[in-house]
């Protein structure tokens, strides 16, 4: 069972790194769905391992909201013609190295818990999303970065779910999904009013 959970966490980490590096409009949505699938898979495995039936609700919510609803909202109103991926081999290589460095840091932090590899992969994914959030300032890119962070934190929560009461964990998970929905809607309003999601075309958002 532990190998299966580690594989699910590995998939989550891989999708998170891919979202940071390959920031093209279609691929990022695909990777977000892969990440959500990994989150749902990990949660399902946790439900079986820890005998927590409540976690199946998380699985259902993750599939419904992250795999279906969020991409639907985004694809309807949030379109960007731009490809924000790293283009040059040097840039791509630097990003990969950066991701590996963050992963090493995450694995180190993961030694805190009883499942060092599982927790390490989740911490690593989290560190990658932190950098993803800070590296670029485009509305579109930041939206995906925060959605990615939101998914990773949810995956982390399902690992810690046995330490908290079921009701509390469920409400926290629901809040996290509400955030994803509000975020997607506000970004959609930005595009509707500003006719763009690129920070270089939005005067104020340049900060």
């Amino acid at each position: 069972m532990s190998t299966a959970t580690e594989l699910a966490a590995g998939l989550l980490w891989l999708a998170t790194v891919a979202m940071m590096i390959v920031k093209a409009p279609h691929s990022v949505m695909t990777f977000y769905r892969v990440q959500a699938f990994a989150d749902a898979l990990l949660t399902a495995l946790m439900a079986v391992r820890d005998h927590l039936p409540m976690l199946w609700v998380f699985v259902g919510l993750a599939v419904a909201v992250r795999i279906i609803i969020i991409p639907e909202i985004v694809s309807r109103g949030l379109n960007t013609p731009r490809d924000y991926s790293a283009k040059a081999p040097l840039g791509m290589g630097a990003l990969v190295l950066y991701a590996l460095l963050l992963t090493a840091g995450g694995m180190l932090v993961g030694r805190i818990g009883p499942d060092p590899i599982l927790l390490g992969l989740i911490f690593a994914a989290m560190f990658v999303t932190f950098v993803h959030l800070s590296a670029r300032y485009e509305v579109w890119s930041m939206l995906w970065a925060l959605l990615s962070l939101d998914t990773v934190v949810d995956a982390g929560l399902s690992v810690f779910a046995q330490t908290m009461p079921e009701g509390t964990a469920l409400v926290i998970y629901a809040m996290s999904l509400s955030l994803a929905i509000v975020l997607a809607f506000v970004a959609q309003r930005v595009q509707h009013l500003k006719k763009s999601l690129d920070v270089r075309e939005l005067e104020e958002l340049t900060g």
Binding site: M142, L146, D150, V153, L179, L183, R189
Partner: peptide, 20 residues
Amino acid sequence: VEAAWKYVMVTETGAMFALF
């Protein structure tokens, strides 16, 4: 709407930090 965007981005990143 732009103010709401900045608000949700910064504070929700904070929310994830706070929870974890």
